[in-house]
Amino acid sequence: MTSSALSALLRSNESTLLDAWLTEQKSTRNRSAVSEVELQQQSREFLQQFQQAVTETGDSIRGDIETSSFRSLRRFLEEVTASRTQQGASPSETARFVLSFKGPLFTLIRSKVPDPVQQLDAISDVTALIDNLALFVTEAHQKAREAVILRQQEEMLELSTPVVKLWDGVLALPIIGTLDSSRTQTIMESLLERIVETGSEIAIIDITGVPTVDTLTAQHLLKTVTAARLMGAECIISGIRPQIAQTIVHLGVELGDVVTKASLADAFRIALQRSNYLIVKRSATQPASSRV
């Protein structure tokens, strides 16, 4: 089938095709998040873009969608896929949007092309084309998902390594989330670099936000503590929750001579004490100026 014939067929039967397609989509649609109005709009747009792409394609249709005539259709499909991915559609749901177009189109060809040989040719050409479009949509879906995952990963890494200066010579490292090898490496490096940068002699590692501590996590923590000690800084581990204290003992993890505290406040108190600071509470009756 030539592209001009298909294009003419599409143009003259646009509304019937659209109606049949929408009915088809509604019957197969399962609790998809796309609203009816949106679906109708997207289907109409697709049909127009598809017709335009077919018209612009030279003599015969080969199922090649990488050509320039399909560029705007590809861009449109990417947009549709991206919005559906964000709404949480599965890959098959997004691909079905394109694949469900096959049925109505075949019915149309069957009724308008009487010659069996021509009919078969037309159907096989159109199948190749639609299949390629469906593959393209699946790939776009995958890409959109990967982009989301990548962004989340980056955000998590940035979130995971803040080193906070609590006082002159006292750093705090609040760890949130599970400690695995690659994260420990990042955390360790940023802590050690900040120790050099600020010349801090005490670092408090707060593990309140670490959900579970297993032998591996404990080993990672101890490595960080040892590395800091080698550089001449002392580490205090704080924020050990009751369950975690039990786990540590049950697992037989040896924390050695590392100072551990239940809360960050306790650890900070020790840190100030070791840096020879004295905390004095000002009494209410005394004027502020009498104390330094």
Binding site: G199, S200, A227, R229, L230, M231
Partner: peptide, 21 residues
């Protein structure tokens, strides 16, 4: 820092050595 990390990974925690910044 890089040297400290390497030593720890090698399992050499240098017990008995005092360290300073």
């Amino acid at each position: 820092p890089a040297v400290a990390i390497t030593l720890v990974e090698l399992g050499l925690s240098l017990p008995g050595i005092r360290t300073a910044l």
